[in-house]
């Protein structure tokens, strides 16, 4: 297990200003990514996982988003305190991003080559930005994601390619220049299951080859299990459980994780259990204590008034629930 912490999020809060107050979406979120580690961030729609990812890259809509507390330390520097030039460097060389929808992640009016070469150009130091060199790197990048006929693809527009090919191009953009952290937001979700399988295998292979750390954001526990070393389970803006992947699926502790796992349909059949009643809380006035308390069958008075601390249950397994206090 590599010990150096690459990304350390401490007590992050993100609010959005709306009519009638603030949506307190991300709530005291803490998360660590070690160098070379594959981390999964799993949660359902609206749990704040995409907001968290946007906060890491500082791409939240500035007019409405507000970060009252928290630190996002990447390689020892707080992203939230970076100036424009440092951010530029962070985005072009430090952290790369793969989005869910490869269609909207590529600009339809430029060729794949123009877009890919731009990414390479900005990542290179100014003295190395020769046309030929950039082009060669681009061709190499497409080879790496197993796209055939690279010259033709470089000259194609995104609409001329299939969804799977577009996602491979997005991956090549993210991986071709040396980055230390890759954030993949639902990279296979908009694709068919066979294509998703191919994309995930490719991503895994490249991450291993380059030694890049990855945060895989997904709603699918199955994808997270297949792809990651360690998983954070997120509910309503907070981490409720974190554990090595194998442990999480064998012994889930938090009632939310237990319910979520039960709700996943299995290919071995046997029906689908309704693990979690109710719905995600209103972020305008979220519950005072544990945010999962209104949907939890095991809650007591304390859950109503106090936020549960994050408890270390050993073996790298953490859970935010009073039930596991000694």
């Amino acid at each position: 297990m590599p010990e150096e912490i690459l990304l350390d999020i401490k007590g992050l809060n993100v609010w959005y200003r709306v009519y009638g107050g603030y949506l307190k979406v991300v709530h005291n979120l803490s998360l660590q990514v070690y160098r070379g580690e594959r981390v999964g961030l799993v949660g359902e729609a609206g749990c704040g996982k995409t907001t968290t990812m946007k906060a890491i890259l500082r791409i939240l809509p500035e007019s409405v988003a507000h970060i009252p507390r928290g630190e996002i330390i990447f390689r020892g520097r707080d992203v939230l305190k970076m100036n424009r030039a440092e951010l530029q460097k962070l985005r072009s060389r430090g952290i790369a991003m793969i989005f869910q929808d490869p269609t909207s992640a590529l600009n339809p009016v430029f060729t794949v080559g123009e877009q890919l070469e731009d990414v390479i150009r900005f990542a290179l130091p100014p003295e190395e930005r020769q046309k030929k060199r950039i082009h060669d790197i681009a061709v190499q990048a497409l080879k790496e994601v197993y796209l055939p006929d690279q010259e033709r693809i470089l000259q194609s527009y995104p609409v001329q390619l299939s969804g799977g090919m577009r996602q491979r191009i997005c991956i090549s953009m993210a991986i071709t220049t040396p980055r230390e952290l890759l954030i993949a937001d639902e990279p296979g979700t908009s694709l068919d299951v066979t294509i998703q399988d191919q994309i995930l295998r490719l991503l895994r292979e490249l991450v291993e080859k380059h030694g890049t750390s990855i945060i895989l954001i997904t709603h699918s526990l199955g994808v997270a299990r297949q792809m990651t070393d360690r998983i954070y389970v997120m509910y309503a803006g907070s981490i409720v459980e974190a554990a090595p992947s194998a442990t999480l699926f064998k012994e889930p502790l938090h009632p939310y994780t237990v319910g979520l796992l039960a709700s996943v349909p299995k290919i071995s059949g046997g029906g689908i259990a309704e693990g979690i009643p109710g719905r995600i809380p209103n972020y305008l006035n979220p519950p005072n204590g544990c945010r999962f308390q209104p949907r939890c069958s095991l809650s007591d008075d304390r859950c109503l008034s106090q936020s549960p601390p994050i408890l270390d249950v050993g073996g790298g397994h953490y859970v935010a629930c009073f039930r596991y206090e000694r």
Binding site: L200, L221, Q226, F249
Partner: peptide
């Protein structure tokens, strides 16, 4: 190709 969550599957 289906991502699954248990060894049994």
């Amino acid at each position: 190709s289906v991502p699954v969550i248990s060894d049994e599957e």
